[in-house]
Design a protein around this nucleic acid. Structure first.
Lengths: 322, 322
DNA sequence: ATTCATAATCAGTTAGGCTGATTTTGAACG
DNA sequence: CGTTCAAAATCAGCCTAACTGATTATGAAT
């Protein structure tokens, strides 16, 4: 009965399952869908979240009864922590399931990609394997590929277009993430009406850039770099400021951005992929690859968080404003 | 049946209760004792740990069947992660139980105390309360006390002797930690045989220092600073190197250190306390104080970790001292 | 209004985990 | 060596938290 002793162990009533339910629900797919992923009934998910809310003493989900819902302010506050806890647990457990990773490994990561999550995952891996020495090299995706043979990289993570995924038979590669590429801008533009397209774009060698130029070419249009930067922050800011039309993957959109699609006459862009390549066949390389590919950090769910509060991007929270 | 789907949610079989059992057991108090703290039977704890070990696929505890036991290498690897997960969960949950902390608070922390844990807790608090702006000021404990009135500090954490705990009625204070102070050295020394005592000690203003000098005084001995430093690292190293006799709290001992007690004729030292004082009566100050005092980081269990592997500090290795 | 899609509710069932008793183990004695 | 002791492992039965399935409630869309 007195379940709530103030022991240093925290409130023992919350379980990881509660957090999982919440995190899944926070994606806004609904109770039914969440239940499917948890191998539980819709009813169970409902009760689970209710229990969690009871324990925390606050509502987490905004439910305008009936259809869809968004997160409450409290929910928004709790979500990052819940994700963090689940990620750490998942990583710690899977790290224990295999022998300790030891040795020295060289990792190549793209410097034109949002890599903070990646860095977190790498550092947690090092924490769980104290005898593992990791060295990270950062370069443009296009260059990393060439460096594999020269620089003795063990594991390489790079982004590329679905049309051109490097598939050397010597290497094992894993698809970490896959998402659509979009034309984005601050306001609506009509493709046909533009003679030249002012692009807000990454430097030469970036595959987003080549995809964009190729697509324009095919449609007999000419694009020019109105704003070029290797930093996501800058690119997003430039697009928001209306300096031109950007080319960004779904996860990198700021909420001020508008997607230019068929209606505006823009050609379709290919999917982009984040690929991990095992360049050496050391056992430790394989282990590290396993760790990273299983890491929840690589999960698209954790991707869509930016500096600006990207609250419930797809729920009708607009209602609050109007 | 197929409980182990490789979903991004991790292995759903592990529960926080498993981790709690493990963490408690890792302290080496035994299954019975752990059960008591968990309000469970010894049998339940045994089964819980067994299940965890089954799931992880490795043994965590070294059990020389019958009596006491230590951690296996795997257990050693898992413990920090388990602690981290429990700490974060506990903090996140208790943070949600109260309204968000907002505002700007000034915290004073002692710079002559091992404060990394404290810093971690503070930064996690800031993460859970994005509208809270925390500013940390570091100073000697003795100085912090005087600064309360001048510097507008909201919350002050300082160490002091049990004999002199500042207890102004205007302030609410919490005891965070309490532990014995010891004379320590690299080898055995006999108190009586020393004319002057070479001390490895913190600078003037440190309460360990005053406690030591007072104790020597009462016994008609004279001490001098053979090595003075404000850094714990330096102090420990100097003691290990045999430069003199140190005065350290239990949690700050390196494992090469020997405690000099009654047998050697050394006088008893007072207990030292880590005290937190609410200097302003803002609501946010109270909330922050609650957060920090409930934080598992403040738990003595998490304290005893130093650079050198301080494995099983109080298991039968105590025999070394006696 | 009707339909549809979804979430909430409720009662009955189930299974995971707990308890309490018992057995096993190893250490400490004489 | 056998005895005693303390602590962990094992086991069978039980209990409760949580799940299921059916039903109801709700709001949006037509």
């Amino acid at each position: 009965m007195f379940d709530c002793q103030p022991s240093s162990l925290g409130d023992r009533r919350v379980t990881l399952e509660h957090l999982r339910a919440f995190v899944l629900l926070a994606e806004g797919k609904g109770f039914q869908q969440a239940g499917l992923q948890l191998y539980r009934s819709q009813s169970a998910v409902t009760q689970s979240l209710k229990r969690l809310e009871d324990i925390l003493g606050c509502k987490l989900l905004e439910r305008r009864q009936g259809h869809i819902m968004g997160l409450t302010a409290d929910g928004e506050r709790f979500l990052p922590a819940a994700n963090e806890i689940l990620t750490r647990t998942s990583e710690a457990v899977s790290a224990m399931k295999q022998p300790e990773i030891a040795g020295r490994l060289l990792i190549g990561v793209p410097d034109d990609f949002k890599v903070v999550d990646l860095h977190d995952a790498i550092s947690r891996c090092a924490e769980l394997n104290r005898n593992l020495r990791l060295e990270v090299v950062s370069a443009l995706s296009s260059q990393l590929l060439y460096q594999i043979d020269n620089s003795g990289l063990d594991l390489v993570i790079l982004k590329c277009l679905e049309d051109f995924v490097p598939s050397d038979k010597r290497w094992r590669s894993h698809l970490l993430r896959r998402e659509p590429l979009h034309w984005v801008a601050a306001q609506r533009h009509v493709f046909e009406s533009m003679s030249e397209v002012p692009l807000v774009i990454f430097p030469d060698g970036c595959c987003y850039r080549s995809a964009a130029l190729l697509a324009l070419d095919r449609n007999g249009k000419h694009g020019y770099g109105a704003y070029v930067s290797a930093s996501y922050e800058n690119i997003r800011a430039a697009v928001s400021a209306g300096l031109g039309i950007g080319v960004l993957p779904a996860s990198a959109l700021a909420n001020a951005h508008i997607i230019l699609g068929k209606q505006e006459g823009f050609p379709e862009l290919p999917m982009v992929e984040l690929v991990m390549i095992q360049a050496t066949d050391k056992y430790a390389t394989k282990q590290l690859a396993d760790f990273l590919s299983h890491s929840a950090t690589m999960n698209p769910r954790n991707v869509n968080e930016y500096s600006d509060h990207n609250v419930s991007a797809e729920s009708p929270s607009a209602g609050i404003l109007g």
